[in-house]
Design a protein around this nucleic acid. Structure first.
Length: 260
DNA sequence: ATGGTAGGCCCCCTA
């Protein structure tokens, strides 16, 4: 079974890339972020034609998340209780055959110390409570849980093209990394790092300054796996091919394979 | 300290 995650930066613009990628990669479930549209304009029909159903939380212009699946899934949640105001569509969770898939679009944070940065930290605090209430027993995640998404956090310096240049900045600041570590402390496993220890593996590159060509990126999109799924995890990787296309998303899809 | 590029939308905001 393949579970993938991709920040498409507008599903309207990226639909051709998305359909092509689904046909070639053929994931069982794909978590999408930054739809930038409302549910009424979501391309259910075109996705259905290639075998995918979808649960969607959209909004006009910003944010928006969805989970596409080949099989039928049960939607568990479409919002984050206790998240700071105003509401933003950044969380959706489904359940399928006893496996929970939680899809996140973590706030970007804009700049350390800004109001948006405080929103990001408050949002993550609510996220930890959400996970603790639903999936944690005795301090660890006891359910079969996969947390996918654009975390807007590069967990360690090896996930950053130039750590010295980025020190203390948004996406890499210690309070943000503390947020990520809280999930690790609940037992969640960074699937990518189970198979690859090296630096230079990125999932996002700024559109500006030819960042992709210059390999100046960050690994901020993640698939985390709970302890009950660890043995089933067989592979985890980043597919940078769609980032090479004309009019790409600034993010690449990340994929995890399970023997289930 | 700033700018560069992209997407959506209402001439600017977010990333």
């Amino acid at each position: 079974m393949l579970i993938a995650s991709w920040n498409v930066n507008s599903i309207t613009v990226r639909l051709p890339h998305l359909l092509d990628w689904l046909k070639s990669a053929s994931p069982d479930h794909l978590c999408l972020q930054e739809l930038k549209t409302v549910e009424e304009k979501f391309p259910f029909d075109q996705l259905s034609e290639i075998g995918y159903s979808a649960h969607v939380v959209g909004e006009k212009t910003y944010n928006g998340v969805a989970i596409l699946s080949k099989s039928t899934t049960e939607c568990v949640s479409k919002f984050l209780p206790g998240s700071p105001e105003p509401f933003q569509s950044r969380l959706i969770e489904v359940c399928v055959d006893g496996v929970y898939i939680l899809n996140l679009y973590v706030p970007n944070g804009s700049e350390v110390g800004s109001a948006k940065y405080e929103y990001k930290l408050a949002w993550f605090k609510a996220l930890i409570s959400y996970i603790e209430e639903r999936h944690v027993k005795n301090g660890v995640v006891s359910d079969k849980l996969v947390i996918c998404g654009d975390f807007n956090i590069a967990p360690e310096d090896r996930d950053v093209h130039d750590p010295a240049e980025w020190i203390g900045q948004v996406l890499v600041s210690e309070p943000e990394r503390d947020c990520f570590r809280q999930l690790i402390n609940l037992g969640m496993i960074d699937s990518f790092r189970e198979f690859e220890q090296g630096a230079g593996h990125f999932s996002w590159w700024d559109y500006r300054m030819m960042a992709f060509r210059r390999k100046r990126g960050m690994r901020i999109d993640h698939i985390l796996v709970s302890p009950p799924l660890k043995e089933a995890l067989k592979r985890s990787w980043i597919d940078i091919e769609p980032r090479k296309l004309e009019k790409p998303s600034d993010h690449a899809p990340v994929i995890a394979e399970f023997e289930i």
